[in-house]
Simulated assay, not measured.
Amino acid sequence: MTVRFELYSTWGCHLCEQAEQMLVDAGLAGQYQVLDIVDHEQLFEQYRVLIPVVACRHSKATLGWPFDQAQLMAWLQQQVQEQ
């Protein structure tokens, strides 16, 4: 499957783990990549207090925490419609 989304995260972040589980529950296994912001200076500067953040590679849109499953699903649907 094509990686269409990114999850900006960091090691030991329980909220990031919840967000990743939401992506799996949304049926996106294999369609997202987890990026540890500690390994990317620009991402660290931009998202260090905002993670977890889901980003769409195509539209460059982001969804930052807090969000629930319904909000994630609505955001994902919007990204699919815009492609």
Rank of each mutant, 00 (worst) to 15 (best):
S59R: 11
Q33A: 08
T62P: 09
A74E: 08
Q31Y: 02
E6H: 09
Q83K: 03
Q31T: 08
Y8W: 06
Q46T: 09
V38A: 15
E45W: 01
E82W: 05
W75A: 07
T62H: 04
S9L: 11
R48A: 10
V80C: 07
F67Q: 10
I51Y: 00
V3K: 14
L7C: 01
L43V: 13
P52E: 11
E17A: 02
G30T: 06
A61R: 15
Q42L: 06
Q42R: 12
Q21R: 11
Q42G: 02
H58W: 03
G12K: 09
L72F: 00
P66I: 04
W75I: 05
L43I: 05
Q18H: 07
V34T: 13
E6S: 14
S9A: 10
L15F: 04
W75T: 04
Q46Y: 07
A74V: 01
A29S: 14
M22C: 12
A26M: 07
G27D: 11
V80P: 03
R4E: 12
Q83A: 13
V34D: 10
T62W: 01
G64Q: 14
E20K: 14
I51F: 02
L7W: 00
A19M: 07
A55N: 01
L28E: 04
C13I: 02
Y47P: 03
L23T: 09
V53T: 13
E17N: 06
Q71W: 09
A19C: 15
A70C: 08
K60L: 12
L35K: 07
C16Q: 10
Y32E: 01
L7D: 02
E41G: 11
P66E: 10
L35D: 04
F5K: 05
R4I: 06
Q18D: 09
V38Q: 15
Q21K: 07
Q46P: 00
H14E: 10
E6I: 05
Q31W: 00
Q79C: 09
V53Q: 10
L43H: 14
G27A: 09
R4K: 13
Q79P: 05
G64T: 12
R48S: 12
V38H: 15
S59Y: 10
K60I: 04
M22T: 01
H14V: 10
Q78Y: 00
V49S: 13
Q21P: 00
V80K: 10
T2N: 11
R48I: 07
W11N: 15
G27S: 06
E45G: 12
Q21M: 13
Q81L: 06
F5P: 02
F44R: 10
M73A: 14
D36V: 04
W65M: 08
C16L: 04
Q31I: 01
T62F: 00
L15W: 05
E45V: 12
Q81K: 08
W75S: 10
I51R: 06
G64H: 14
L7V: 03
A19D: 05
T10D: 14
E41N: 08
G27E: 10
I51W: 00
V38I: 11
Q71T: 14
D25C: 00
D39P: 01
V53D: 15
I37C: 05
E82L: 11
V24P: 00
L7A: 04
